[in-house]
Nucleic acid binder design. Structure first.
Lengths: 285, 285
DNA sequence: GATTTGTTGTAATTTAATTACATAAGAACT
DNA sequence: AGTTCTTATGTAATTAAATTACAACAAATC
C-alpha cells in the first residue's frame, strides 16, 4: 500500500493539526517532496514536530523517509489513482484515462502473475500434440489472437468461438492435447463444461481466468490475472489486454524453449507474408 | 529520463571517484535511498563532497534531491524502457520484459495519438448507419474485439476476417456506412483494395494503421499508432495491444456521446448475460 | 471545577548536508 | 624532464535540516 493511499485511508484517525498536514500534502504532493519540514509546516500552518509526528504515524522513519515514500507513490501511483472515466470527460480526458488504467492493469498483472505457472504452461504447450484455444464473447478475440500466434509455430492449433464446435473438439481431445480456456470471470457455464469434458478425455486444460472460479477448478493449470476492472464501464477492457499480454508471454516462452533453429522457421513464415504486401520492411497486419 | 538510466548513460563522463559512487548506487539502489551521504561515501570509499558533486552532475539539487529522484526511478522499476527479449532469458526475464515493453508501447501510443482525430472518429461512428470492422491475420482479432464492443451498443455492426466477405461487404456499402480497416503496417494489399472500394461506394473509411502507409492514403480518417515494435520477435505484439486500447477509447467515446439514457441500455445487455453464468458478480468472459 | 489524557508548540540538541578551502594528481607545454 | 596549469579529491568549517525533550494548552472525564 502506498503512502498516498495510506493518508487517504486514515484521515479519520488524524487529529486536527495532522489533518491540516494531510490536506496540504494531498493538495500538492509534488511540491511536498521538494519541501523541507519547515516549509511544509508553514504551508499547513502547524509546527515542525507536528509534521514529524504525522510522518511517524504513517510508519515512516521520519520526514526525509516520508518524502522518499511519497516520491515512490507519485512515481507509479498518481496516474493510476482514481482514473475512472466519467460522464463529463472530454476526448483528452477519457483517452488519457483509458491508456493509464490499462497500463495500471498491466502493472498489477505483472506483479501478480505466477512465473512458475507460466513456466509450467510453456512446458505443457511445447510438448502438446495439438493446442486448442477456446473463448466466448470478448474472450473469443483473445483466443483468435492466440491461434494466430501459435499457428506460426507450425504446431497443430485450433480455435473455436462456437459452443458446439468447442464441445465437439473437447470430446475428441486425448492425452497429449492441450486445451486453453479463456474467460475473465471464469463463470461462463458453457466454458466450464468444455473444460470438464476435455479433462475427462485426458487433455491438459490450461485456464486463463480468475483464480478460484468455477472454471479454474476444472483446469489442470490456472493462469490467473486478477486485474482490477472498472466495473462502472459495461465492458471488460483492461483484463482482456492483460490476457493478450499473457498469450504473448506464452508464445515467447514457446519460441525460446524451441531454440534458435526453430526460430529460423518463424522467419520463413514471416517472409512468406511479404508477397501479400506492398514492399518495404516488416510484418504484421 | 530517469536517474538510473542517466547514471548508466553517463558512466563514461565520470571521474574515477564518481565512477565508484555510481557503481555502489547501481549495485544497491534500494539501500542507497535509505542511506545518508556519509554512509554512501563510506560504501563507495570516497569523501562526502564527492558524493554531493556526483549528485549535482546528474542535475539534481543535492544529495536529498538525488535520493528522491532515485526513489522515483525505483518505484516504477524501469517499466517504460523497451527491453528486448533475448535468447538466454528465463521465464522471469521474458515475462517482465514483455509486460514492460507493452507498457512502454502504450505510453508512447498515448503521447502520439491525435485526440482530434479520435474525436472526429467518434463523431463519424455515432452517426453511422452501419459499422464494419475489417482486419486480416493478427488484426482480425482486433476487429473481432471491436465488433464485440460495438455490438453491445445496439448498432448494426459487422466484422469479417475473410477477404471475399470483406469485399462483398465493401461493395454493398453506401453513404452513411462506416468501414474501419485495421492493419499495423498498412501495407496489406487486400485491405487497401477494400478501403478503396468502400470509399468508391461513399462509405466513410477509418483506418487504424500506420501513418503515411498505402492503406492510410485510402482512408477518410487515419488513426495512427506509431508504436515501436520489437522487430526481433517475429510477431507484432505491442502494436496490437495499442490497437485494442484505441478501440476501447472509441467505444468509450461512443457511449459518452450517446448519453446516459443509452448507457442504461448497455446495462441491460450486461444483465442479460447473467443467465449464462454461475452466480456472483460482474460480467465479461 | 479539578484532574487526567491527549495534542500542539517552543527551544535545544543532534544529525546531516553543503560550502570553502587546501592539497594532490594528472595533463600540457616549455 | 621540469614547470605550470587544470582538474579531481579530501579535510574542516559552516549552515541547514530534522529530531528530541519538555512545557503549555485544550478537551474530556470524573
Amino acid at each position: 500500500m502506498n503512502v498516498l493511499e495510506k493518508i487517504v485511508g486514515s484521515v479519520t484517525s488524524f487529529s486536527k493539526s495532522e489533518r491540516k498536514v494531510a490536506d496540504v500534502i494531498l493538495a500538492n504532493p509534488q511540491i511536498t517532496i521538494h519541501s523541507s519540514i519547515a516549509a511544509l509546516a508553514k504551508m499547513a500552518d502547524v509546527s515542525e514536530p507536528t509534521v514529524n509526528r504525522f510522518c511517524r504515524r504513517l510508519d515512516t522513519k521520519g520526514f526525509p523517509d516520508f518524502k522518499l515514500h511519497l516520491a515512490q507513490s507519485l512515481a507509479n501511483g498518481t496516474p493510476y489513482v482514481n482514473r475512472h472515466v466519467e460522464e463529463e470527460d472530454g476526448p483528452e480526458a477519457y483517452t488519457a484515462k483509458i491508456f493509464e488504467s490499462t497500463m495500471a492493469a498491466l502493472d498489477t498483472a505483472r506483479q501478480r502473475v505466477d512465473i512458475n505457472t507460466i513456466n509450467r504452461a510453456v512446458d505443457v504447450l511445447t510438448q502438446a500434440k495439438k493446442i486448442s484455444f477456446f473463448g466466448l464473447g470478448a474472450s473469443a478475440s483473445v483466443a483468435h489472437d492466440a491461434q494466430n500466434k501459435f499457428f506460426r509455430f507450425n504446431v497443430p492449433v485450433v480455435c473455436f468461438d462456437d459452443i458446439v464446435m468447442q464441445r465437439m473438439s473437447a470430446i475428441n481431445s486425448s492425452d497429449g492435447d492441450v486445451v486453453v480456456c479463456i474467460s475473465h470471470t471464469g463463470r461462463t457455464k458453457n466454458l466450464c463444461d468444455i473444460a470438464a469434458i476435455a479433462r475427462e478425455n485426458d487433455a491438459t486444460v490450461i485456464g486463463i481466468t480468475a483464480y478460484d472460479s468455477p472454471l479454474a477448478r476444472e483446469c489442470t493449470l490456472v493462469l490467473s490475472l486478477d486485474v482490477p476492472e472498472d466495473t462502472d464501464m459495461y465492458m471488460p477492457m483492461a483484463s482482456r489486454v492483460a490476457q493478450l499480454v499473457l498469450i504473448d508471454i506464452l508464445a515467447t516462452g514457446f519460441t525460446l524453449r524451441r531454440g534458435s533453429k526453430f526460430r529460423e522457421n518463424l522467419k520463413k513464415v514471416k517472409d512468406s507474408l511479404r508477397g501479400s504486401r506492398f514492399e518495404k520492411k516488416d510484418f504484421a497486419n
